[in-house]
C-alpha cells in the first residue's frame, strides 16, 4: 500500500501568538512493502508527520493519499484509514486500560466492528506475534506486567487490527538493551512475514541502519534527506547539522575511508564493515 504526501504543511495554533510551524512543505512517496526509517532530533516534526498518516490531525495545507484514499476529502471515512494504517505511539504502554491483557488487545479489532470471537482470535494471534505465547497470562491485568511486556501488549493491540501499513514511533524508547533487541527483532520478523509497509520513527541511527531500506531525515520541520542508508550516511556533515550522529559503524567506515582505506559506501552494518576491513587489510598485506 502506497502513501503519497504532497506539499504538506502543518501549523499549530495558526494566527495566535503561539503559532508554530511543525511541518514545512514535505513531499514524499512510500511504496508498498517498504521499510522506512524516519529520523530527526526532538521537535523536528516527525511525530506530527506520522499523525497525519492516519488522519489524527489535519494538514494546514497539502495533500495525503493513503492507498488511493484522499485524507483531505471529507467523505473519506477515517475508520477505513485507521484500519489500513496502524499507529503505535511512543510509550504505547500508557494507553493500556482494560482488565485483562486479552481484552486490551481486542479493543482495536472490536472497534473495527469484528465479532468477539474473531477479535479474540486476532488478539491471540497478535500476542503470539509479539512473543507472548504463554496463554495463562492473557487473563492477567496488563498493569501487572514488566515495562517491556507492557509495550509488547500495546504493540499487539495495534497489530491485531491487521493494518497494511504499520507506523511505530520510537518503539524502543526507554527500554534496556535486551528489551530493544526483542522489540527490533519482532518488528523485523513482522515486516518479513506480513509484507506490510513499515515506518519506524527513531532517534537511533543504529536501529534505523540495521532495519530500513530507506531513511528519511527531518530537521527543523523540513524533510532534508531521503535516500538509502548508504546515500544518507555518505553525507555525515548534513546529519550532524540536523543534530544527529552517524551510527558507530558508518562513522568508523568514514574514518577508515579518510585514512585511505578502500571501504565501500554500503558497508555501514557491522557484518559488511568487518568483511570490507578484512578485504582491505588482505589487499594491504599482499602489496607489502
Amino acid at each position: 500500500m502506497s502513501i503519497e504526501i504532497r506539499n504538506l504543511i502543518h501549523t499549530y495554533m495558526a494566527g495566535g501568538p503561539f503559532e508554530r510551524t511543525a511541518i514545512e512543505d514535505v513531499s514524499l512517496t512510500i511504496e508498498d512493502g517498504e521499510f522506512v526509517g524516519l529520523i530527526g532530533h526532538t521537535g523536528s516534526g516527525k511525530s506530527t508527520l506520522i499523525m497525519h498518516l492516519n488522519g489524527l490531525i489535519k494538514p494546514t495545507s497539502g495533500s495525503i493519499l493513503v492507498d488511493g484514499l484522499d485524507l483531505m476529502d471529507k467523505k473519506t471515512s477515517l475508520k477505513d484509514v485507521r484500519k489500513k494504517v496502524g499507529l503505535v505511539f511512543q510509550y504505547p504502554e500508557y494507553q493500556l486500560f482494560e482488565e485483562t491483557i486479552l481484552k486490551d488487545v481486542m479493543f482495536g479489532p472490536k472497534n473495527l466492528g469484528l465479532s468477539d470471537q474473531e477479535a479474540e482470535e486476532r488478539a491471540r494471534h497478535a500476542l503470539r506475534q509479539v512473543g507472548l505465547a504463554d496463554e495463562s497470562m492473557y487473563e492477567k491485568s496488563p498493569f501487572e506486567l514488566s515495562g517491556g511486556q507492557k509495550r509488547r501488549v500495546a504493540i499487539a493491540g495495534v497489530l491485531a487490527m491487521k493494518p497494511t501499513t504499520l507506523i511505530l514511533d520510537e518503539p524502543t524508547a526507554g527500554l534496556d538493551p535486551r528489551g530493544r533487541e526483542e522489540i527490533l527483532s519482532l518488528i523485523k520478523r513482522y515486516h518479513e512475514e506480513e509484507k506490510v509497509t513499515l515506518i519506524m520513527v527513531s532517534h537511533s541511527m543504529t536501529d534505523v541502519s540495521r532495519l530500513c531500506s530507506r531513511i528519511l531525515v527531518m530537521d527543523h520541520s523540513r524533510l532534508v534527506m531521503n535516500g538509502t542508508p548508504d546515500e544518507v550516511f555518505m553525507n555525515g556533515d548534513r546529519l550532524m547539522q540536523a543534530g544527529l550522529a552517524l551510527p558507530p559503524c558508518a562513522e568508523l567506515a568514514e574514518r577508515l575511508r579518510g585514512a585511505g582505506f578502500d571501504i565501500p559506501a554500503d558497508a555501514y552494518r557491522p557484518g559488511e564493515l568487518k568483511q570490507a576491513i578484512l578485504r582491505s587489510l588482505g589487499r594491504g598485506k599482499s602489496h607489502a
Binding site: 475508520k79 485507521r82 499507529l87 505511539f89 494507553q95
Partner: peptide, 13 residues
C-alpha cells in the same frame, strides 16, 4: 490529548 489520539488510532470513537 496523547492518550486520546492513541485510542483513536485503535479505532476508538
Amino acid at each position: 490529548d496523547k492518550i486520546m489520539k492513541a485510542q483513536m488510532a485503535r479505532g476508538a470513537d
